[in-house]
Simulated assay, not measured.
Amino acid sequence: MDTLDKTDRRILEVLQENARLNTKEIAHRIGLSVTPTYERLKKIEKMGVIRNYVTLLHPEKIGKTLMAFCSVTLQLHSQPLLKKFEAAIGRMEEVMECYHVAGTFDYMLKVVVDDMRSYQQFLTNKLAAIENIAQVHSSFVMTEIKHTTAFGLV
C-alpha cells in the first residue's frame, strides 16, 4: 500500500482546515501546481484516508444546548446482544458517537440534545428501552475546553 509523504500530509492538513477548497486553492496553499495536487488528492481518496467531506455545525446555533457522555454497562456480553445494542444505538440521532471500551463500562456514548428535558426523554424512552442494559452513568458537559476534528499530521 502507498504511504503518505510530506506533501500528501500537507494536503490533508489544508483539507481538515477547510474541506470546501477546490484543487486550485489547495495547490496554491501547498505550493504545488493543480495537476499534481489533483492526482495526489485522488490517490489519497483511493487509499481510503479521507472518510468523508462534511459540514460541521455549531450545536447551540441549531438548538442543541446539552451534551452528555453516557457510560453504559451491559448485563450480558454475548455477540448477538452486543450487536443488537450497537444496532439500536446506530439508529438514535441523539447519539453522535459510540465507542465500545475496555474498563469499568462497556460503551461510551456522546449524546447531544436540546435540553435536560430532551435528555430525560432520550434516556427513558430510547436508551432504557434497549434490553440488556445494566447501568447508565451520565456526565454533563458544563464547558467545552477543546473540540477538534483535525488530526495532527506533521
Rank of each mutant, 00 (worst) to 15 (best):
L15G: 05
K6H: 10
I62M: 11
G103K: 00
K46G: 01
H100C: 04
V141S: 09
M108A: 07
L56H: 08
Q16N: 04
S78C: 03
Y53L: 08
M108K: 09
K46C: 02
V101G: 03
I44K: 09
L12F: 04
I62V: 15
N132L: 05
V95K: 00
V112N: 10
D8W: 13
T35F: 02
E17H: 04
N18E: 02
E93P: 12
A27E: 00
K43M: 05
Y119L: 04
L4K: 01
T3M: 15
H100V: 07
L127P: 03
E45H: 08
L82F: 14
F151H: 08
A128K: 14
L76R: 12
E45K: 11
L82A: 10
K46A: 09
A19L: 10
I130E: 00
T104F: 13
A68K: 06
Q79N: 11
S118E: 03
K24H: 14
Q75I: 07
G63V: 07
K6T: 15
D115Y: 05
L4Y: 12
Y107C: 05
L12R: 03
R10F: 14
E60L: 10
V136H: 11
E144N: 08
K110D: 05
E13R: 10
Y99T: 00
A150C: 00
M67F: 11
T55M: 07
G90M: 04
I130K: 06
P80Q: 03
L153N: 04
N132D: 06
M92Y: 06
V95Y: 02
N18K: 06
L109D: 01
T143Y: 13
V136G: 06
F105S: 14
V112W: 05
I50V: 14
H77T: 02
D8S: 07
I44Q: 05
S138P: 07
L153E: 15
N18G: 01
E93D: 07
V101E: 02
T55H: 02
S139C: 11
P36F: 00
N22K: 03
I11M: 11
V111Q: 01
G31K: 00
R9G: 05
L127K: 08
N22Q: 08
M108V: 15
L123Y: 10
A87M: 12
